[in-house]
């Protein structure tokens, strides 16, 4: 597999709920090792699109492939080949660090021996050996996030979907988290991330901005700033999102 290969590719992807078109014919590709920022206002259709990519919802029309599998006919295979993490839910607070690793390892279909090996390696790498039996709820937020990201990549997925991973997180902790993202991407993992922090959008290899179900802009942050004659991705976002016609 080479690095120019598309890990995600979608063509005219569309999702309708009754008469409402949540996602309206979007097309794009994400290459191996890219950090792809999937931006848009609340209600623009990001979550619906992401659910289709993760195999959790079928498109009304259009097609797509993720990690080599078809999102319509092979959605179960996709679920095993991707990682997913969100700010709202990622780990069980009432389980210990080790219990969470074992639970998610099992869900991802790893054999018990493999789970144990990965757990030992992961606890060592994160410097969490002494916390193996600590309840996740008792960990500081920064640690919890590190662990959640490690658990989402436990089965060495080709692509990780991060849904607002830094929502409500302070500037120091949020930057620590982005260093994990950089490191994973440098190691060849493809990152698909949504965020409402526009400074984080600047850290992406490429970004797309969705408005009313469509992709209105797609490119590297530098290209887009030139093309739309703005100084920052934040300005570009405001420019495009203010033109939205549909409310949430």
């Amino acid at each position: 597999m080479n690095e120019h290969e598309a890990v995600i590719s979608v063509r005219e992807l569309t999702k309708r709920f009754g008469t409402f078109t949540a996602v309206d014919g979007i097309s794009f590709e994400v290459r191996r090792g890219e950090i792809f920022g999937f931006l848009g206002a609340n209600g623009a259709g990001k979550t619906t699109a992401m659910r289709m990519l993760c195999g959790l919802s079928y498109p009304t029309s259009g097609s797509g492939r993720v990690a080599g599998y078809d999102i319509v006919t092979q959605s179960e295979c996709i679920k095993r080949r991707i990682g997913y993490m969100s700010q709202r839910f990622s780990l069980y607070d009432d389980l210990t660090v080790l219990e969470n690793i074992r639970l998610f390892g099992g869900i991802y279909g790893l054999a018990p021996g493999a789970i144990l090996r990965r757990a030992v390696e992961l606890l060592g790498r994160l410097g969490f050996r002494r916390e193996a039996r600590t309840r996740v709820g008792a960990l500081p937020l920064g640690w919890k996030q590190k662990l959640a990201f490690a658990v989402a990549t436990l089965h060495r997925p080709e692509v990780v979907f991060l849904d607002e991973p830094t929502g409500g997180v302070d500037p120091v902790t949020r930057r620590q988290f982005w260093e994990l993202i950089y490191e994973a991407a440098a190691g060849g993992t493809t990152i698909f991330v949504t965020t409402h922090y526009m400074d984080e959008a600047e850290y992406c290899s490429r970004v797309s901005i969705m408005v009313d179900g469509r992709i209105r802009a797609l490119g590297t942050p530098a290209e887009l700033k030139r093309r739309f004659a703005v100084g920052t991705v934040d300005e570009l976002f405001r420019l495009l999102a203010r033109g939205a016609t549909r409310s949430e």
Binding site: N42, Q87, G168, H196, F237, A241
Partner: peptide
Amino acid sequence: DEPTTGVDPVSRG
């Protein structure tokens, strides 16, 4: 208490 967490930049404004 953190009233705009998860809210996009335009709505936050």
